[in-house]
Amino acid sequence: MEQGTVKWFNAEKGFGFIERENGDDVFVHFSAIQGDGFKSLDEGQAVTFDVEEGQRGPQAANVQKA
């Protein structure tokens, strides 16, 4: 798993971006967030995640709040 920081996340649209430790950004969809209840992330929040190849390039999977 990688570690990163939430760059931004739009809860209304259900997606955002995580900044990886290497400085690259990776797309995150709310469906990739682990846990119960409303799935959202806060700007600046530390997270761990896997990276999978999506239809439009790399995207975060198995996102967990650190």
Results as ranks from 00 to 15, higher is better:
1 M>D: 08
1 M>K: 15
1 M>W: 09
2 E>R: 07
2 E>K: 09
2 E>Y: 15
3 Q>E: 10
3 Q>G: 09
3 Q>R: 15
3 Q>T: 12
3 Q>F: 14
4 G>D: 00
4 G>S: 02
4 G>E: 01
4 G>P: 01
4 G>T: 00
5 T>R: 15
5 T>N: 10
6 V>Y: 00
6 V>G: 01
6 V>R: 00
7 K>G: 04
7 K>N: 03
7 K>H: 07
7 K>E: 02
7 K>P: 01
7 K>S: 05
8 W>V: 03
8 W>H: 04
8 W>T: 03
9 F>Q: 01
9 F>V: 04
9 F>M: 03
10 N>G: 04
10 N>K: 09
10 N>Q: 05
10 N>W: 12
10 N>M: 05
10 N>Y: 07
10 N>H: 09
10 N>V: 05
11 A>P: 13
11 A>V: 12
12 E>T: 14
12 E>F: 15
12 E>D: 11
12 E>L: 14
12 E>S: 13
12 E>Y: 14
12 E>G: 12
13 K>N: 06
13 K>H: 11
13 K>D: 04
13 K>G: 05
13 K>R: 13
13 K>M: 11
13 K>E: 05
14 G>I: 02
14 G>R: 04
14 G>T: 03
14 G>Y: 02
15 F>W: 15
15 F>D: 01
15 F>M: 06
16 G>F: 01
16 G>H: 00
16 G>Q: 00
16 G>V: 01
17 F>P: 00
17 F>N: 02
17 F>S: 03
18 I>S: 00
18 I>A: 01
18 I>L: 09
19 E>K: 15
19 E>H: 15
19 E>Q: 15
19 E>C: 11
19 E>R: 15
19 E>V: 14
20 R>P: 04
20 R>V: 09
20 R>Y: 07
20 R>C: 06
20 R>D: 05
20 R>W: 10
21 E>F: 12
21 E>L: 15
21 E>K: 15
21 E>S: 14
21 E>H: 14
21 E>Q: 13
22 N>I: 12
22 N>A: 11
23 G>P: 02
23 G>Y: 09
23 G>C: 06
24 D>W: 10
24 D>V: 14
24 D>R: 15
24 D>G: 12
24 D>K: 15
24 D>S: 14
25 D>Q: 11
25 D>A: 09
25 D>E: 09
26 V>M: 07
26 V>L: 14
26 V>P: 00
26 V>R: 02
26 V>D: 00
27 F>C: 03
27 F>P: 02
27 F>D: 01
27 F>M: 03
27 F>V: 02
28 V>C: 06
28 V>N: 00
28 V>W: 02
28 V>M: 06
28 V>D: 01
29 H>F: 09
29 H>G: 03
30 F>Y: 13
30 F>I: 08
30 F>R: 11
30 F>K: 09
31 S>P: 03
31 S>L: 08
32 A>I: 03
32 A>S: 10
32 A>H: 06
32 A>Q: 08
32 A>G: 09
32 A>W: 04
33 I>C: 03
33 I>H: 02
33 I>Q: 02
33 I>R: 00
34 Q>W: 10
35 G>W: 10
35 G>R: 04
35 G>N: 06
35 G>F: 08
36 D>W: 08
36 D>C: 10
36 D>Q: 12
36 D>T: 13
36 D>K: 12
37 G>E: 06
38 F>C: 09
38 F>V: 09
38 F>R: 09
38 F>W: 15
38 F>Y: 12
39 K>T: 06
40 S>T: 15
40 S>H: 13
40 S>K: 11
40 S>Q: 09
40 S>M: 09
41 L>R: 02
41 L>G: 03
42 D>A: 14
42 D>M: 14
42 D>L: 14
42 D>W: 14
43 E>G: 14
43 E>A: 15
43 E>N: 14
43 E>R: 15
44 G>F: 05
44 G>N: 07
45 Q>L: 07
45 Q>T: 11
46 A>F: 11
46 A>V: 11
46 A>P: 11
46 A>N: 10
46 A>E: 11
46 A>W: 11
46 A>S: 12
47 V>A: 02
48 T>V: 12
48 T>K: 09
48 T>H: 08
48 T>N: 09
48 T>R: 11
48 T>I: 12
49 F>P: 00
50 D>S: 14
50 D>R: 08
50 D>K: 10
51 V>A: 04
51 V>D: 02
51 V>F: 07
51 V>I: 14
52 E>R: 09
52 E>P: 03
52 E>D: 09
52 E>S: 09
52 E>F: 12
53 E>K: 10
54 G>R: 09
54 G>S: 11
55 Q>L: 14
55 Q>E: 11
55 Q>H: 12
55 Q>F: 15
55 Q>N: 12
56 R>G: 09
56 R>A: 08
57 G>M: 04
57 G>Y: 05
57 G>W: 05
58 P>S: 08
58 P>D: 05
58 P>R: 12
58 P>N: 07
59 Q>D: 02
60 A>R: 00
60 A>M: 01
60 A>V: 03
60 A>P: 01
60 A>D: 00
60 A>N: 01
61 A>T: 13
61 A>W: 07
61 A>H: 10
61 A>P: 02
61 A>E: 06
62 N>I: 04
62 N>P: 01
62 N>G: 05
62 N>R: 08
63 V>I: 05
63 V>T: 03
63 V>P: 01
63 V>G: 00
64 Q>G: 08
64 Q>C: 07
64 Q>M: 11
64 Q>K: 12
65 K>L: 12
65 K>R: 11
66 A>N: 12
66 A>H: 13
66 A>R: 14
66 A>G: 10
66 A>Q: 13
